[in-house]
Amino acid sequence: MSVDRGEERKVEFLGGASVDGAPVAYVIVLAAVVLALSFIPFSVVVAAGGSFPMAQGILPLVGWILGPIAGAIANVVGTALAIFLAPHTASIPVMNIVGAIIAGLAAGSMVTDGPRKRWWIPISVVLVISWLLYVGRGILVNGVGLWPAFAQSFIDWSGTLLFILPTRVLVGKWLKSKNMGLVAAGLFLGTWIVAGAYHAVQSPIAYWVLNFPEEVWYILIPILPVEHLFRCLIGTVIGTGVIAGLRAIGLVKPKHAIY
């Protein structure tokens, strides 16, 4: 095949726009996905008849596809625009924004090696402080009992703990596995951790504003884990489909992607 083609040229990319190694266009479309799914309610038949937007199930996935910084940006832009378009859907806007940022950062930091292998430390500090603020304020200021405080914040502290422990790295490893069963397991565990993490930073904010009495803590004890479980289920179903699809299409992978 070497007929008169001449010499191979040196190919160099002379400029172009990316956000922390992810093409700007990827960040835009995933932000738009978060925004669009913010308007699809997920009515889950739990005891209280709770409902949350489907977007919550994919915030971690965006972090894994784009990496921590671009993921956080896509999440925050999508979430903020959802609030701007329909302010009445968010009772405490700042809570949604903070949660979206943490989801991207935490998911994108589940790496095994490289210069970002220590990013989990500051994130963990934020998570632990948030949890302490939440539970601490409940127990010390408002006299909530020790047991309900722990039981009600189960998803927060379990997510945080699993993020600090090597399970964080395990998720990263599973997500990159060729075995789709392991990928699904990684997605389930990973969504548990990341959704737990963003819930953990949202809790003290919600609690500061709403300052609900001890009785409400009791009511929430069974509801929160069920809701969380559904979030994980959504994250897993969507995540396995999307990751299998992305691998099949062979799209250019963002630099810090974990899949």
């Binding site: 001449g6 010499e7 191979e8 040229r9 190919v11 160099e12 990319f13 002379l14």
Partner: peptide
Amino acid sequence: VPQFYGGRFYGS
């Protein structure tokens, strides 16, 4: 092509 996509390029 080829700056954004990369790959092998000959000629001009």
